[in-house]
Amino acid sequence: MKLYRPATVLVGVLFVLLGGLTRLVDTDQVYEDSTRVTAHGTIGQKIQYGDSAVTVTRMRFAKTFLADENDDKPIETDGIFVAVEYEAYRGTKDPGSNDVTLTADDGNIYESVAENASSGITFPQPGFTESGAFVFEVNTNDLKGLTFKLRTSQFFTGVPARDIAVDLAVPSDEVAKQLVDKAADQYVMPERSTRVDS
């Protein structure tokens, strides 16, 4: 019995080529694909997130922070703390879960550091608004282009995942330096509060 007839070999080569071609068509972005939509905004702007919405109300720089007002030991850093306060409006549809990060132009990714805070915005019940804050520990030399990013981590396939990017208005290193110089001595994390949507 002849195992390797030229026709057999040819079919094998053809399959290998087909495999390579499908990879070419597929592009290199397998996970971050066209099904993600990013909404851009600035501080104070109400950004639609499905039929919910998110507003970044305030940004503060601080040298230390207290996780809550009854804490007596402030948390310190060699860098600087950036507090981002937000309001989350909940629509009728479930917005799923998400993760928030701060990113800078140099490519640094900062995560929320407060021990008892969650890593994403938790939306309240439909018709309610929740306000809260995240504290990020940030390198003072890498603040330019600071952006607050919300990335949907749980969503239904087929529906575009909505992400949010909020420009925190640090256009240059000079602005960053001024913000750091004027940073408050201490920031007290506000308690999360829920109220009826107005």
């Binding site: 060699d78 640094n108 390198n139």
Partner: peptide, 11 residues
């Protein structure tokens, strides 16, 4: 004093 302290790149 924080377990699983988050370390920032660059600090």
């Amino acid at each position: 004093d924080q377990l699983n302290y988050k370390l920032v790149y660059g600090l």
